[in-house]
Nucleic acid binder design. Structure first.
Lengths: 325, 325
DNA sequence: ATCCGACGTGACAACGTTGTCCGGGTTGCA
DNA sequence: TGCAACCCGGACAACGTTGTCACGTCGGAT
């Protein structure tokens, strides 16, 4: 910048003014400065700028589980879009479900003085962020609530969705409904399980724990569990799958056996329409989830100091799957 | 930091040393400083640190088309993994295929003094980056080559893959092969088209431009084009789809009609195995693409000044699709 | 006993930018 | 012609950190 000033024959400050489009600079000087900038290939140092002027780095952080997962990719996409509208860059980091890593990444982002944080929590204790929150770093949690810190939160109606989905099975007369889930350790799974029980309770059917299977991590595992359940005496007549990975495995096994069990799965997915088996999915607008959170975040960044709020977004039942040829 | 120093009764510099784990500080002082840090909730300002020490910001930039697209999400995931191994944060920005936006984003990232840039080019002229490259910002282009600037590039063997895929159709005796593509303006599409022609040339079959359809942006459009082609007199007996969005639409329409046309598609996709129609896909390792590029980038960041190289990764033909029940 | 080197600590300046303030010049009006 | 108001440009300090250097102390070797 000194070089630019020298070359243009003006002071440092004038260059700064030109670079920042400050009004009240002689047009002729502006031109000279711009010429010098072009000639020297000058590029403003955003770090120094943020450091000096304090406050804004025009950067927000997004912490998710894993960027390659379509759910989080959709979140990242929507967040990026909102960030872009606010001329803000997005730092994305993946916690890989590791609370220690989550903490380290969030601390690092704070050290970089991001203007705000969008967090899909992995751990259950976020009290280490309390100092940051009090220090004024805006923060919005999405998909799962934070632990030990009061902040804006945007959630899906997991319980209501599960209740509606299983409710439909119950209405259709099913009583032996198998429930397949990943890990009970995750907030969303617990909510969905509660929703399923809400729907089953009024039927008076005993809550059969043998029909609830946990720890299903991938489609292959889901297929195995389905096979096992169907080979039991008195097999289930319907399946409730708690996420789309599990749904895939269930579809595969039901197809293979030519079964006619009913299937309801949480999470819609791109190719659900093309599945060779009829199923009902509990769908929601992932982008809307992230958009809501990001817009809330920017409202905070722009100075909104009102009491933290929690927003719950609705889910919807959708028929998927094409009949086989 | 001054406050920490005061509270600990040491100099500013000693605090800096402790914070940076510099050896040769009395254990007792270290303890006093750490206590003060904890009490005051001190967090080092990464901006100031990078500014002062110059060189490294521990941040790299990734420019892609659109983060929500699974292809780019896979790239982002692999890049994030490599970045993480190097304790580096990742700024991700989407160009939305807009060259102007691409330029603005890349400039902005440079202004933030990222340590390096990973770019899936949208535009065709990147000469505006030449100054940056000469100034020493490492840069690796992936999936498509840059224009007007010499830099490391990691590509897929688009041409070879298309040649092999269409070759298989030719071997199976097909002569009327429809070719469906998105935009001829994109490098990868041109390469794939060249590959298809490579395979068709030896058959002596006339290259029938009526069988080549461009401008297919989504599955629905692909379905329409397939319908149109099949309704012609002397319809194609095989289809070559140049990306997975198009493949989806083709599958859907072929299923609907109970057609038995052969299908080869570029790009594998998650649920290809479950497609209710037999197809061959031209697959490649997207994560390997990004991993290679990112590792190349870090080698540059760590000081490798050798001549820019271009790496081409292989593709593979894979049978997909389940037979219908 | 003396010197040398290693080690631990601190004072100071600098990274590149912008906020503050002041001064010089111009304009308009009495 | 004088004065006030205004506008533009520049000098200077500061943002929070770290590199450089110099100083003091201590242990060991000569």
């Amino acid at each position: 910048m000194v070089d630019v000033a020298t070359l243009a024959g003006v002071s440092l400050k004038t260059v700064s003014r030109v670079v920042n489009n400050t009004p009240n600079v002689q047009p002729e000087l502006v031109e000279r400065v711009l010429a010098a900038v072009a000639e020297l290939g000058f590029r403003r140092n955003h770090l120094a700028s943020s450091l000096r002027s304090g406050q804004t780095t025009a950067t927000i952080g997004l912490l998710i589980e894993e960027i390659a997962n379509p759910f989080y990719a959709a979140i990242a996409g929507a967040a990026a879009e909102v960030a872009r509208r606010h001329d803000t860059m997005l730092i994305i980091a993946s916690s890989e479900e590791d609370p220690a890593r989550e903490q380290q990444l969030l601390r690092d982002m704070c050290a970089r003085r991001v203007d705000g944080l969008l967090v899909v929590p992995a751990g259950h204790d976020h009290s280490f962020l309390r100092a940051e929150v009090e220090l004024g770093t805006p923060m919005v949690f999405l998909d799962r609530p934070p632990g030990g810190v009061l902040a804006d939160t945007v959630l899906l109606d997991n319980r209501g969705g599960a209740r509606a989905g299983v409710g439909r099975l119950v209405e259709a007369g099913h009583r032996r409904i198998a429930i397949l889930l990943d890990s009970i350790g995750v907030y969303t799974m617990r909510e969905r399980l509660d929703g399923a029980q809400d729907a089953l309770a009024p039927t008076g059917a005993p809550y059969d724990t043998r029909l609830v299977r946990e720890g299903i991590r991938d489609p292959a595992a889901a297929s195995r569990v389905v096979a096992e359940l169907l080979d039991q005496p008195d097999p289930p007549t319907a399946f409730f799958s708690m996420n789309n990975r599990i749904t895939l495995g269930v579809v595969e096994e039901l197809c293979r056996r030519g079964s006619d069990a009913a299937l309801v799965g949480f999470d819609d997915f791109d190719l659900a329409r093309l599945m060779p088996y009829p199923l009902t999915v509990i769908a929601y607008d992932t982008r809307e989830l992230a958009r809501t959170a990001a817009e809330l975040l920017f409202r905070r960044i722009e100075g909104d100091r009102s009491w933290p709020r929690t927003v719950v977004l609705p889910t919807e039942l959708v028929e998927r799957g094409v009949p086989p040829r």
